[in-house]
């Protein structure tokens, strides 16, 4: 429809207390129109109380190709999890 209009990624906060979550994308000539279009496309049924739009070109993502090595550092650090520690069952509230 308008490859000349930039692509925006849309994030919606479902209700107060929740994070904004990515819901999809759309084209719009500027940020203001992107917010208005996002309201019409992604929140026709009270799906949100707040919308963020971000130019798709402004997003930097980790590359899926380096998936394994990139996230590997956390893989062998089992001591970061509470279940790593053995505590006698009769110790309360722990």
């Amino acid at each position: 429809m308008s490859s000349s209009w930039p692509l925006w990624e849309v994030f919606v906060r479902g209700k107060r207390g929740l994070n904004h979550v990515h819901v999809g994308s759309l084209h719009a000539p500027d940020a203001e129109m992107a917010v208005r279009n996002a309201r019409d496309v992604y929140t026709r049924r009270n799906e949100g109380v707040s919308i963020w739009v971000v130019p798709a070109a402004a997003i930097t993502a980790s590359s899926p190709d380096e998936k394994d090595p990139f996230f590997e550092p956390s893989g062998d650090k089992v001591y970061r999890h509470p279940t790593f520690y053995e505590i006698p069952e009769d110790v309360p509230h722990l």
């Binding site: 429809m1 308008s2 490859s3 000349s4 692509l7 999809g24 994308s25 759309l26 084209h27 019409d40 496309v41 026709r44």
Partner: peptide, 21 residues
């Protein structure tokens, strides 16, 4: 709206919206 969700999905595959129209 449904058309727009789906066009947006094709764009994640590298399709061009104008070209599809």
């Amino acid at each position: 709206g449904h058309g727009l969700y789906l066009y947006a999905a094709t764009e994640t595959l590298g399709a061009d919206r104008g070209e599809l129209t």
